[in-house]
Amino acid sequence: MTSMLTPPAVASCAVERIGGADRYEVSAAVSSRTFATARLVFVAGGESFPDALCASAVAGAQNAPVLLVARSTLPDSVAAELRRLAPVTVVVVGGPEAVDATVEAALAPFAHRVTRVGGADRYEVAARLSALAFPSSPPVAVVVSGEVFADALGGSAAAGALGGPVLLVPTDRVPDTVVAELARLRPSRLVVLGGPAAIAEPVVDTLRTIVGDTTRLDGADRFVVSAATSAHAFPRGARTVFIASGSTFPDALSGPAAAIHDRAPVLLVTADAVPAVSRAELARLRPERIVVLGGSHTVSDKVMRDLLDRPGGGTIGG
């Protein structure tokens, strides 16, 4: 089995953490470390994952960051990052239940134009984001569960690498808004992430009737799916790899946009360990830099040390 093999030696690799006092500060820190400036910024609610992770695929395609806000508050750390970025346009992602009108008004001084991409639900928001950024006939579209954040983390980064959007479906059906967007997109192929517990087989069958070339990447758990997604999207390795918690989403929500900017996959870990499948994928990728998303409460210092101590580990950065 792969986990029984000794990974090949790799060149020395720097390991760094992007943390902060909360998810909003982390999002600002991810942006500031990745984007010198940005004419376009996406702003999403930090209290649920779907809008931010679908926005990441769009933001990455347009060299833009994703910043997080509370439903009714623009955090000071995010305001400071908007001031530094000085965007021309800010796109608010999601309806007023995710980011309300108070925040939308508070964003106005930071850009010439503030617009919103909303919808009746997360599935419609994802479809409208796709329509906003991707012309017809992209090489791929990535489909993930709208109910399981872990597959969407790696899926957003993979979609950016493969040149297509992320679309969401529930476990048991394909929403009409997704059917319509796939009909408009006409992607060359679909990649579905997650096993039948996340996206039922009849849903994949339905997707296959819309886009004939449809591949499912699944596995025993979210860590296996994450590694398989990385291997599919980055077959030749990657200079940078982002590491995120597989059990809690907030600190990682802004990571995929930065990962797309750096042409990097996102791999998952537990709070206190690097799963064997993630370790093996790191050995295959042979990165020169590993970026851990979130503070030690999300991904522990032990994991940082484990990443450093793996074959090819190098220096820890702050």
Rank of each mutant, 00 (worst) to 15 (best):
T2I: 10
M4K: 14
P8E: 09
A9I: 09
C13I: 11
A14I: 12
E16C: 13
R17I: 11
Y24G: 00
Y24C: 02
V26C: 14
S31P: 02
A36N: 10
R39Y: 13
V41G: 01
G46Q: 00
E47S: 13
E47W: 08
P50C: 07
A52F: 03
A57C: 13
A57L: 11
A57K: 04
L67C: 10
L68K: 00
V69C: 08
P75R: 05
P75C: 07
R84L: 05
P87F: 02
P87C: 06
V92R: 04
V93D: 01
G94A: 12
G95Y: 02
D100W: 01
A105P: 13
A111D: 09
R116V: 14
A120S: 09
D121K: 08
R122V: 00
L132I: 05
L132P: 00
A133Y: 13
S136L: 03
S136I: 11
P138S: 08
V142I: 15
E147L: 12
A152L: 05
G154W: 02
A157D: 00
G160P: 07
P165L: 02
L167W: 02
V169C: 01
P170F: 14
T171M: 14
D172T: 10
V174K: 02
P175R: 00
L185S: 01
R189E: 12
V192E: 03
L193A: 07
G194H: 04
E201A: 15
V204Y: 06
R208F: 04
V211C: 07
G212I: 04
T214D: 06
D218A: 15
V225T: 04
S226D: 12
A228P: 09
P235D: 03
T240F: 09
T240N: 11
D251F: 02
S254F: 00
P256F: 10
A257K: 01
A258N: 09
R263G: 11
A264R: 00
L267H: 03
L267C: 04
A271C: 08
A271H: 10
D272M: 06
A273R: 15
A273F: 12
V274H: 10
S278W: 12
R279K: 15
E281I: 05
L282W: 06
L285F: 08
I290E: 09
L293Y: 05
G294Y: 04
V299R: 00
S300K: 07
D309W: 07
G312S: 10
G312R: 05
T315G: 05
I316A: 08
I316M: 13
